[in-house]
Lab assay of single mutants.
Amino acid sequence: MEQGTVKWFNAEKGFGFIERENGDDVFVHFSAIQGDGFKSLDEGQAVTFDVEEGQRGPQAANVQKA
């Protein structure tokens, strides 16, 4: 798993971006967030995640709040 920081996340649209430790950004969809209840992330929040190849390039999977 990688570690990163939430760059931004739009809860209304259900997606955002995580900044990886290497400085690259990776797309995150709310469906990739682990846990119960409303799935959202806060700007600046530390997270761990896997990276999978999506239809439009790399995207975060198995996102967990650190």
Rank of each mutant, 00 (worst) to 15 (best):
60 A>G: 04
21 E>W: 12
22 N>K: 13
4 G>A: 03
17 F>I: 07
55 Q>C: 09
41 L>H: 02
22 N>V: 14
53 E>C: 10
6 V>A: 03
31 S>Q: 07
22 N>M: 11
58 P>H: 07
2 E>Q: 13
19 E>L: 15
18 I>D: 00
51 V>C: 06
5 T>C: 11
30 F>G: 04
22 N>S: 12
34 Q>R: 09
28 V>K: 00
44 G>R: 07
1 M>S: 14
25 D>V: 11
3 Q>I: 12
30 F>E: 05
36 D>Y: 10
34 Q>L: 14
38 F>P: 10
27 F>W: 06
29 H>D: 03
48 T>P: 01
19 E>I: 15
63 V>D: 01
57 G>F: 05
43 E>C: 10
66 A>F: 11
29 H>E: 03
61 A>V: 15
25 D>T: 11
5 T>M: 10
61 A>D: 04
20 R>Q: 07
60 A>T: 03
55 Q>K: 15
33 I>E: 02
23 G>L: 11
59 Q>I: 09
38 F>M: 07
27 F>E: 02
13 K>A: 08
56 R>N: 12
42 D>G: 10
20 R>T: 08
40 S>R: 11
45 Q>R: 05
36 D>M: 10
59 Q>V: 11
54 G>H: 09
63 V>L: 05
20 R>L: 06
54 G>E: 04
4 G>Y: 01
29 H>R: 04
57 G>N: 05
16 G>L: 01
52 E>L: 12
11 A>G: 10
5 T>W: 15
14 G>D: 01
21 E>R: 14
30 F>N: 04
3 Q>S: 14
37 G>L: 06
37 G>K: 06
57 G>D: 02
21 E>N: 13
4 G>N: 01
29 H>S: 04
47 V>R: 00
30 F>W: 15
4 G>V: 00
58 P>C: 07
1 M>E: 10
29 H>C: 05
11 A>Q: 13
9 F>I: 04
47 V>C: 05
33 I>D: 01
40 S>L: 07
7 K>Y: 04
35 G>P: 04
14 G>Q: 03
56 R>T: 07
41 L>V: 05
24 D>I: 14
38 F>L: 09
4 G>I: 01
57 G>T: 04
41 L>K: 02
48 T>F: 14
5 T>G: 04
45 Q>D: 13
20 R>S: 07
4 G>W: 02
28 V>G: 01
32 A>E: 05
1 M>H: 13
8 W>E: 02
8 W>Q: 03
39 K>N: 06
42 D>Y: 14
11 A>K: 15
29 H>N: 03
44 G>I: 02
56 R>Y: 15
60 A>F: 01
23 G>N: 12
59 Q>H: 10
12 E>W: 15
66 A>I: 15
25 D>N: 10
61 A>S: 09
37 G>Q: 06
28 V>A: 03
55 Q>M: 13
32 A>C: 06
31 S>R: 10
46 A>D: 09
29 H>Y: 05
28 V>Q: 00
9 F>N: 01
37 G>C: 08
33 I>F: 06
11 A>L: 10
52 E>W: 11
32 A>K: 08
18 I>R: 00
26 V>T: 04
41 L>Q: 02
66 A>D: 09
54 G>D: 06
39 K>A: 07
60 A>W: 01
7 K>T: 04
15 F>H: 06
44 G>E: 04
25 D>F: 11
66 A>C: 10
56 R>V: 08
8 W>G: 02
42 D>Q: 14
18 I>P: 00
8 W>P: 00
43 E>K: 15
40 S>G: 08
44 G>C: 08
23 G>S: 09
27 F>K: 02
60 A>I: 02
34 Q>S: 12
20 R>N: 06
35 G>I: 09
44 G>M: 05
6 V>E: 01
29 H>P: 03
64 Q>D: 06
64 Q>Y: 09
22 N>C: 13
3 Q>K: 15
37 G>Y: 07
17 F>H: 03
33 I>L: 07
64 Q>E: 07
4 G>F: 01
16 G>N: 00
2 E>F: 15
45 Q>I: 10
11 A>E: 10
13 K>T: 06
54 G>T: 13
32 A>T: 05
34 Q>K: 13
24 D>Y: 11
57 G>E: 03
53 E>S: 10
46 A>C: 10
39 K>E: 06
55 Q>A: 15
50 D>M: 13
52 E>G: 06
40 S>W: 13
33 I>G: 02
57 G>H: 05
35 G>M: 13
39 K>C: 06
12 E>I: 13
23 G>A: 11
5 T>H: 15
37 G>A: 06
35 G>V: 10
2 E>W: 14
53 E>N: 13
25 D>K: 09
23 G>Q: 11
51 V>T: 07
35 G>K: 06
64 Q>S: 11
47 V>L: 04
14 G>P: 00
62 N>E: 03
9 F>Y: 10
64 Q>P: 01
28 V>F: 14
56 R>P: 07
8 W>K: 04
25 D>P: 08
57 G>P: 05
65 K>E: 07
54 G>M: 07
41 L>M: 05
3 Q>A: 12
1 M>G: 13
54 G>L: 06
59 Q>K: 10
33 I>S: 02
9 F>E: 01
45 Q>W: 11
39 K>F: 06
66 A>L: 15
18 I>G: 00
32 A>R: 05
51 V>K: 04
18 I>W: 01
44 G>K: 08
21 E>D: 13
40 S>F: 13
44 G>P: 02
65 K>S: 09
16 G>C: 01
59 Q>P: 01
28 V>L: 08
24 D>Q: 13
21 E>C: 12
29 H>Q: 03
37 G>I: 06
63 V>H: 01
10 N>L: 07
